[in-house]
Design a protein around this nucleic acid. Sequence first.
DNA 1: TTTGATATTTTTTTT
DNA 2: AAATATCAAA
Length: 723
Amino acid sequence: MDLSLMNKEQKRAIQTTEGPLLIMAGAGSGKTRVLTHRVAYLMQEKEVPARNILAITFTNKAAREMRDRVSALIRNGASDIWVSTFHAMCVRILRSNINYLGYENSFSILDPTDQRSVVKDILKRRNLDIKQHNPRSIIGFISDRKNSLIRPKQSAEEAEGYLDTLYSEIYHDYQQILYRNSALDFDDLIMLTIELFEKEKTVLERYQNLFQYIHVDEYQDTNHAQYQLVKLLAAKYRNICVVGDSDQSIYKFRGADITNILNFEDDYPEAAVIKLEQNYRSSKNILDAANAVIGNNTERKPKALRTDRDGGPKLHSIVSASERGEGQEIVRNIQDLSSGYSYNDMAVLYRTNAQSRAIEDALVKSNIPYKMVGGMKFYDRMEIKDLMSYMKVIQNPNDDIAFERIINVPKRGIGPKTVDKLKEHGVHTGASIYEAIKESDFIGISKNAVVKLMNLNDMLDNLKQKSKYMSVTELVDEVLADTGYLDLLEKENSLESRSRIENLEEFRTVTREFDKDNEVSDELLFTFLSDMALVSDQDGVDEDSGVTLMTMHASKGLEFKIIFIVGLEEGIFPSRRVMFDDKELEEERRLMYVALTRAEDRLFLSRADSRMIYGKTETNMRSRFLSEIPEELVEGEAADTPKPIASDSFTMNSRGPKKKSRVITNNSGVSFTVGDKVEHRKFGEGIISGIKGEGDSQELDIIFTTVGVKRLLANFAPLTKKE
DNA sequence: TTTGATATTTTTTTT
DNA sequence: AAATATCAAA
């Protein structure tokens, strides 16, 4: 195998095949290349059979890419390597073994909307107020527990206080409902695989023997459950290679535990450790900026990436009047650069999906092609979810969650009242909705409704029969025809229904693609649904030409010649929610680091003087992350501007929207602007960090030294200006 | 039961 | 601004 193009550390990482290995791979240090070569090296030089190699990646797209790149290095056999995400691997394992845990092998996988409806059902049944108990936080609670491998019983035992106890009980109900439906949520995939391994040692041993060489990419973003899973699998051979960069840990909110990578050497004292600090991606200016920003994090092992590339152009700072102006400025720069670069080389990164709108609008107006990652996801569209629910019900009629979604879609006169009765029956007897329908005559449902239910029942049974000998595409067509779904849309003939039909058409290209690779069989529908449940946003990035739009989170692992980072304002990025929590602020800064290090040649940093948020105009200070970049690396905005500048001097585009004054005057005639130091009668000294709203309801965000941030009405707050 | 109208809430980030 | 929840009328 030719390793002549590798540096010394990279070679060592590839050739250290036996025993535990920790690769600390900085951004752009050729980590993917090392991983692919290592796998190829194992097969070619060490003659390890492909099926004994496991490689876990963060996204399905990364998995596909890794498989392709290994294929390019070796003659054949790459298709036998296990390359997948944690979740996809667990689905595969559970699919053939979950019956040990009492679930059906044909289990379905819940998406977040399904989870929400399960939780809401539980709240309703327990007569709890949905406003007091936000389903979101309950789902978060359950997810946290599962990621920590805490079962409902243990959660209840360890609960402290009323809320903990209550949520543990809800967790218990939730888990029971899922079990009854043979449904798993994302976290279950990991947790139940571990449970399976602990319960059935022979199954564990089988996989331990199979996975003799294990690789885990993005190890800094694994959670506790994933960590345990890897530990179990690697226990026999201890050939475990993890790759990660603690500076790029950005998924704490999802349970990622950075100590997994920091303590790797404690778990495996014999581990070899290799650091890759040579960056091959970014120009020196970009790298210097990234190093300077991340250097502000205190909780980290110091390290600095090196590059042999020259300085390159300076980073470019852009200030616009509003988010619309920001979009226009981005477009202007894209057009300037489009002579030397392809649109594919450019990406716009933002903190929240909602920020994509203004950018999209500007791109559409200028006829610039773009592709968006995430956002309103294709598979989240109503018609797609409806269709998927039909498929789920056909595959597993006892999937109540899917069943409830389609029971009255299209409208067939089976309303909430009837559904309640069916569910009520289920609570007493343990029957699913599907089973309850067969009893519907005896449980107080009107004759009228019973007939309708029977019709539905017959139609579904009929579809189920058909599904056994049809391709998925054919089945989709049958479902759309038999249910009258397509008819309904065609009859409506509105702009919206047209687009829905287009989306369904688009879905058929997905199924056709799937049918091409899969033979018709009993398992076909199940395989299709499993695959679908695991597709992630990042998987959608394809070859079509265009500027890429995505969140900074979604950009991890990718690189582009030109990067635009937008919305660099306090309260946007860093997000308002974390501004005063040092720990979370450090995670936010790592996110900035990830964003910065995506760029190879050019980097644009953009902010707007004010922008619309929740339908209100807000004015925010420039992001601290901007200020952390040494000014000599940046051109554009005068780098050393301690506070935003008054009035219209930054309306770069004369066609831009009229700028609102960011100086406001209160009832006593005192005027304030962002950055002013003020004195409050009760809270003491503070600094104005933002201005919200319009007219009489204008509010000031003020950071007080004593009490942190407060939002006060400009007209009534007892404020005096200092200095 | 379904529908349309009005009130209320919501945004981090995601496999 | 947009999505969701709640309420009133048909």
